[in-house]
Computed example of a mutant assay.
Amino acid sequence: MSRILVTGSADGLGRAAADALLSAGHDVVVHARNEERAAGLAALVDRGAGLVVGDFTERDAVRRVAAELNDAKPLDAVIHNAGVWSGRAVMPVNIIAPYLLTALLRGPRRLVYLSSGSHFDGRASLAGVDWRGASAGSYSDSKLFVTTLAAAVARLRPAVPSNAVDPGWVPTRMGGPSAPDDLELGHRTQEWLASSDDPRALTTGGYWYHGERQQPHQAVHDEAFQDRLMRALAEETGTALD
């Protein structure tokens, strides 16, 4: 069985994924942004899940979580699930945190990044992006960036399957109660990519929706755009992704 980190697993899709992976016998590490949210994960921790706590709006917290995980048993996979819809945390949580974790964590053999159909509305431009969120930021842009990050990592680390997943617009706290998509299908693909021995799950550089590989925004596989994004993230965080 695999050791899998699921970020943003206090509720919604992250919790559903962590719960299902734990039920399947995997060694799961859950994540919450603060101790209050972590208390809500007691049921999973009682069943054997590990726990890390850190507010991903703060880069030092992301680094501390990475260091804590690097000092523990190696991870086999990471599901970068943590995300926010609006406000000043959009860029810090949706793209800076997964970039930093990818750069800092040692050893994960599979990487899964949560994208969104909204990434098609993102702008393939880095001009004027406020990575620290002082002037907030576009959710669509952040999801285009993280989908591009997944593709860039697939190219730069060919031995590590790296994929992006659109979970659909599902009825979570972020998606709202009227969201029309299937909550169950919304977390199955990322679990499969993180843990399955199916040859399709071991492919890399994909953009997936409900178990099917689809074509993302044309900028995602533009290597020049990938390189610009990776340089910008490395310069912004002071941390290069090898």
Rank of each mutant, 00 (worst) to 15 (best):
H187T: 04
D141E: 13
D71W: 13
S115Q: 07
I79L: 12
D242T: 10
A67K: 12
L22K: 02
W85D: 13
W169M: 13
A16E: 08
G175D: 02
R157D: 01
E191W: 11
A61N: 07
M1S: 14
S138I: 07
D198A: 12
V112N: 10
L100D: 01
S115T: 07
G176T: 04
G8K: 03
H187K: 04
A61M: 04
T7H: 00
T7W: 00
D55T: 10
L51T: 01
R231P: 02
V170E: 07
A194Y: 02
R106Y: 14
D198N: 07
I79A: 06
P216V: 11
N94T: 09
V170W: 09
G168V: 09
G122R: 01
W169C: 13
L193H: 03
R231W: 03
R37M: 10
A49I: 07
A194T: 05
A82L: 11
T148C: 13
T172N: 13
G168K: 05
T148R: 02
V165G: 09
R63F: 14
A234Y: 02
R155W: 01
R47D: 14
V6C: 04
R109A: 15
E191L: 15
A38I: 11
A24N: 13
R123E: 14
H80L: 12
S9I: 01
S2K: 12
L144E: 06
I96N: 05
K143N: 07
F225V: 00
A39Q: 12
V146H: 08
P167M: 01
H210N: 14
L5R: 00
N163S: 11
V129C: 03
P177R: 06
P108F: 04
T203D: 15
G87A: 10
N70D: 15
S86T: 15
R123A: 13
G48W: 13
Y99G: 02
A224T: 14
V93N: 00
P180N: 12
D222C: 03
L111W: 05
T172E: 13
L51R: 00
A82T: 09
S135V: 14
D11P: 04
S135A: 15
A134H: 14
A159G: 10
P108M: 06
W131Q: 12
G176A: 05
V29W: 00
D121T: 04
L241P: 01
S178N: 15
M174T: 06
V220W: 09
V160Y: 04
S162G: 12
L233Q: 08
A127S: 07
Q215E: 14
V45H: 00
F225G: 02
